[in-house]
């Protein structure tokens, strides 16, 4: 019961994040919303694992977290330097 309520709450938060991702006026709103959707996917994975009494899928949640960071950092790096191959560490030249 507790896990079902938690899963429902995660679904609601996913819905709110999707609304923000669709409505977000700036790119950063959308990016934070996409990151939140990734986190919601991790939480949903964990909660669903416990809901169906097979919590061994928790490991995959770690993989999701890593991938979430990859996407976010790629977007931010692109936004900051305009180039994914940039070495970083200095101010953008433009």
């Amino acid at each position: 019961m507790m896990f079902a309520v938690a899963a429902f709450a995660v679904l609601v938060s996913l819905g709110l994040a999707v609304i923000r991702a669709l409505a977000g006026p700036t790119v950063f709103d959308r990016m934070v919303a996409a990151n939140t959707i990734g986190n919601g996917a991790i939480l949903l994975l964990a909660v669903f694992g416990f809901l169906t009494e097979r919590p061994e899928f928790l490991d995959i949640g770690i993989l999701y977290a890593l991938l979430n960071i990859v996407g976010t950092i790629a977007v931010l790096k692109y936004f900051r330097y305009g180039d994914l191959g940039h070495r970083g560490g200095e101010e953008p030249s433009q």
């Binding site: 996913l14 999707v18 991702a21 790119v27 919303a33 996409a34 990734g38 999701y64």
Partner: peptide
């Protein structure tokens, strides 16, 4: 924004597959 949204779409799709 489309790139970001497609990333979010992938996470939702992964949730559905789970």
């Amino acid at each position: 924004a489309v790139v970001i949204l497609s990333s979010a779409y992938s996470f939702l799709m992964a949730s559905v597959l789970i």
